[in-house]
Design a protein around this nucleic acid. Structure first.
Length: 285
DNA sequence: AACGCATACAACCGCGAACGT
DNA sequence: CACGTTCGCGGTTGTATGCGT
C-alpha cells in the first residue's frame, strides 16, 4: 500500500505563484495563523496543495525574510556551519535569521560550491582537494574558512556529515557552541538591517489589505500598546490602487532597489515600535 | 537580432520524522 | 505499541534571465 498523496493532484495547480495567490495565502496566514497546512488551500481559496502553500510561505512570503544575496559574513557562516552539520540546511538556516533553508541550499549549490572548488577545497568534506598532506581536519577547515571569526571553537570541527550515532552529539554541540540561541531571529532583529523593506510585494500587501490589520492585532501584541496604526500612518488609498496585480507588478519591478527610495519605510523596526520577528513563527527559526 | 549555453532561483517530489489516536 | 496522518527536510527539476557568440 502506497503513501497517500498529499493532495488531489488532479485539481491542484502547480508552477509559479501568481500575485493573487500570494495575496490570498498571506491574508489567510496572517488572519488565521499557521495551522494544518493541508487545510490551508481550501480555507484560503487556493487551488494548491498544502505543501505548496507551506513552501511558498516559508520560502518567500514570510514577513521576516531577508531578500537578496547572502552577505559575505552570512556566506562564511554557512560554510562554517556546513563544515559542522553537512547538508542539514534547515539547521544552517536556523542560524541565519531571515534566510530559508531553500535559499541557503540554492546559494550553496550555485555560489559557494564553485567558490570552494575554485579555492581548491572540496565543498563536501571541506578538505583541500589534494588532501594527501593533511594533518588535521581542523587546520584545513580553519585555513579555508579564514574569515570565520565568529565561531570561537575551531578545535571542535567535525566531519561534515556526522555518523548517525554522532548526530545528536553534533547537534547538541552545535547548539551549545554557537553563540546565538535558537531564537536567533529575535536576537538579530535589533542589529541587522532587516531587509524586509526591500520586498515591495510584502510592503504593498501589508499596507493595503485591510484584513492585515486584524492580523496585526492577532499576532502583534505590541501594536495596540505602541499605538501604531497602519491605517493612520501608512495607509494608501485603496481606490487609488486600481488593482492589486497592477501595483504588485510595479512593485516587483522595483524589487532590486531599496524600498526607501520609494518612500516605503513602514517596516522599519523603529517605525513599527516592535520587531517583525515578534510574529509567532512557531518553531520555524 | 537570434540563437544557444550557463546561471540562479523558485517550486516540486519523495522520504522520514513527529505526532495523534 | 501499531497505525494513519501531517509536517518538514533535502534532493532535484523547471524556468526565467543573463551572457557570449
Amino acid at each position: 500500500m502506497g503513501r497517500q498523496p498529499c493532495c488531489d493532484k488532479l485539481s491542484v495547480k502547480k508552477g509559479p505563484w501568481t500575485a493573487e495567490e500570494d495575496k490570498k495565502l498571506i491574508n489567510f496566514i496572517l488572519t488565521n495563523g499557521q495551522c494544518c497546512w493541508r487545510a490551508v488551500p481550501k480555507l484560503a481559496g487556493l487551488l494548491r496543495c498544502g505543501k505548496s502553500c507551506r513552501l511558498r510561505w516559508t520560502n518567500y512570503l514570510r514577513p521576516d525574510l531577508k531578500r537578496g544575496l547572502l552577505t559575505e559574513a552570512e556566506e562564511q557562516l554557512v560554510i562554517d556551519l556546513h563544515a559542522r552539520l553537512g547538508n542539514r540546511w534547515s539547521k544552517i538556516a536556523a542560524r541565519l535569521p531571515g534566510r530559508t533553508d531553500n535559499e541557503i541550499k540554492n546559494h550553496w549549490n550555485t555560489h559557494i560550491k564553485k567558490k570552494l572548488t575554485k579555492m581548491g577545497i572540496d565543498p563536501v568534506t571541506h578538505e583541500p582537494i589534494n588532501k594527501s598532506s593533511i594533518t588535521t581536519k581542523t587546520t584545513s577547515s580553519k585555513k579555508t574558512i579564514s574569515a570565520v571569526d565568529h565561531q570561537p571553537e575551531p578545535e571542535n570541527l567535525r566531519p561534515p556529515v556526522p555518523e548517525k550515532t554522532e548526530e545528536s552529539q553534533a547537534i547538541s554541540e552545535e547548539n551549545s557552541s554557537l553563540s546565538p540561541p535558537e531564537n536567533c531571529s529575535g536576537a538579530e532583529s535589533g542589529s541587522s538591517d532587516n531587509n524586509r523593506e526591500d520586498d515591495p510585494l510584502m510592503n504593498f500587501l501589508w499596507e493595503n489589505d485591510i484584513s492585515f490589520l486584524d492580523a496585526l492585532s492577532w499576532d502583534f501584541p505590541a501594536t495596540e500598546s505602541t499605538g501604531y496604526s497602519i491605517n493612520n500612518e501608512y495607509s494608501i488609498n485603496n481606490e487609488a490602487m486600481s488593482s492589486w496585480e497592477e501595483n504588485c507588478a510595479w512593485l516587483l519591478d522595483c524589487q532590486d532597489f531599496g524600498v526607501e527610495e520609494f518612500g516605503f519605510g513602514c517596516f522599519n523596526d523603529v517605525d513599527m515600535g516592535m520587531t517583525i520577528n515578534s510574529l509567532d513563527m512557531g518553531d520555524k527559526l
